[in-house]
Design a protein around this nucleic acid. Structure first.
Lengths: 123, 123
DNA sequence: ATACAATGTAGAGTAAACTCTATGTCAAGA
DNA sequence: TCTTGACATAGAGTTTACTCTACATTGTAT
């Protein structure tokens, strides 16, 4: 299947402006039809979903750009891309660990509040 | 103990400019000495560490501002502050869950790469 | 033929959270 | 006394990632 930018925007939940911006930043390169309109494919769809995953886990656009660049070069860059993902996963792991620690501390604080409020309402 | 802004900057790992910015945004209100210099206390230190925790878990400055405002009003706002923290913890929980899902998918992708590379190097 | 909705480009504007610059004050050491 | 160096304020500039505006084309329904 092929999609116009409007359809693709609905499919991906990314605004039309955002899609054009991503293209400008060389993250996506949809084909064009005879009238210069963008034609997004299912492959583009899978790729955008992956981009969203990278973004949502904190990878900056610049780095996704680098990844996209490697991807465009084909299988010769498989190693390098795997390396990037591996490094990213390690930092994500760390990120999750830190958030869990914060979570524990915040839970403690909530307990502390609960007790303080109890005491206050009694006193 | 009391600290000058320079000392406090080193203690908190927040730049001097950032500390002044936080004050401008009403997050911190250090006392001043006779020459109008800021005097940070140990209480300010604990408070800044807490602000950092909120920030690092994704709470925007505006919301921390609101929390600081309540804090400044004293014990009458304990309930409201606990409510804020509770809501924040729920979203943090969700955030962690999402990240863990992303992590699993990225790990899958890395495995996929590993196999593809193996096949490629053999073929 | 014409209106209109979707699309195209180029470039300006926005929001958040800093970060830096310019300029001035002030206490302490040479 | 003079000169640093830390600090003060006000306001400008930066970065990231969009988001929007202005204006030109194009495809389709009337």
């Amino acid at each position: 299947m092929e999609y116009s930018i409007g359809e693709f925007s609905r499919l991906t939940n990314l605004g039309i402006h955002t899609l054009r911006y991503y293209e400008h930043e060389n993250l996506i390169m949809p084909k064009r039809n005879s009238s210069n309109r963008r034609c997004y494919s299912d492959k583009d769809l899978a790729w955008v979903e992956f981009i969203k995953r990278l973004k949502d886990t904190g990878m900056p656009i610049k780095e996704i750009q680098r990844y996209a660049e490697l991807r465009a070069k084909g299988d010769l860059t498989l190693n390098e891309r795997m390396e990037m993902l591996t490094v990213h996963c390690e930092s994500l792991n760390e990120q999750i660990k830190v958030l869990q620690e914060h979570m524990a501390k915040l839970d403690d604080k909530i307990d502390f509040y609960r007790q303080k409020i109890e005491r206050t309402s009694k006193g």
